[in-house]
Nucleic acid binder design. Structure first.
Lengths: 160, 160
DNA sequence: GCTTTACCTCAAGTGAAGTTGAGGTTTTAT
DNA sequence: ATAAAACCTCAACTTCACTTGAGGTAAAGC
């Protein structure tokens, strides 16, 4: 059941994704394979873990670019060790904690602000684009680019 | 300070978005405006609230299409009342609770699973694409399409 | 009054994350 | 041995959420 060598089709089926997606991920440098005599892709079981991580990260809004960078922080061209995954997992957990905190804050704002129907534009935090509903506390590794860019180009002293 | 009529430029600046984005949102039916004598857009302050909601929803991964549908569930062609916003906020909160639960589950899985470096493909929940790390508990209104589609075409009794 | 700034429309472009299709080769099953 | 299923490449297409640009009009500031 747990074979040592996998074909694209098997991996795709196992992970619930398309073969074309595997081609795409490989092209993007997110996963790796070697070829058999007939030029067909072959995978180590390790690839399943990678894809799981990709999918999990995507679910929480991390871009492929960031995921790639996170992977690259693992010792290159070597099957990640237990310690490697632990390190990755540490970064990921910080990011997740940040997201959770963000969502909770947002939920509270919705309850207290949209819910109440207030139209006070000066006090309502949802009206204020400069209030980032801060994601502070998240690890640096996986903070998305767009957000960092937005942060950088924003006048810190803006107000209506 | 809190004017009763807004121009595109003012709204854009206040919300921290581009004028072109406002054009785009209007085209998509997410916001509304009327025109002055010179064909320029004019907005009620209400639009600020709408945009805040759009931005908040986007942050948690809700598509514009869904946001539009949520807006359409509000009584049509009428400025939403306090009760209308409260209803929307209720649906939103359920969705947020679902997301939070999902993130927490994911974080725990990462800690217990990637972290440990286990390679047991039969027991590791991250390996199993059929384990949706369930978002159960989220409200129906804002669950995203893709997920519902995925759910529908999935054998409910799947397990590795 | 004039010039600068803000606004208008419409079409086309962008980037992310894939998907689809054509045309051909390899593997597997019978 | 042969047919079906799986695989290959490469280019083009798709959707989402915007952005950019061209060519022109309206409003505001001095």
């Amino acid at each position: 059941m747990a074979e040592a060598i996998w074909s694209v089709g098997k991996v795709a089926k196992r992970c619930g994704i398309n073969v074309s997606t595997l081609h795409f991920y490989e092209q993007q440098g997110l996963i790796h394979s070697w070829r058999n005599a007939g030029n067909q892709r072959r995978y180590k079981p390790e690839v399943l873990r990678r894809i799981s991580v990709i999918k999990a990260a995507q679910k929480v809004g991390v871009s492929l670019e960031e995921i790639k960078r996170a992977f690259e922080s693992l010792p290159n061209n070597r099957t990640p060790t237990v310690e490697d995954w632990q390190q990755l997992s540490k970064n990921w957990q910080q990011m997740l904690d940040g997201r959770i905190a963000y969502l909770q804050k947002l939920r509270n704002n919705l309850a207290g602000c949209i819910g109440c129907g207030c139209l006070s534009m000066t006090s309502c935090p949802l009206y204020n684009p400069d209030d980032k509903l801060a994601e502070s506390g998240s690890g640096p590794v996986l903070l998305d680019q767009a957000e960092q860019k937005a942060r950088a180009q924003q006048d810190p002293s803006a107000s209506s």
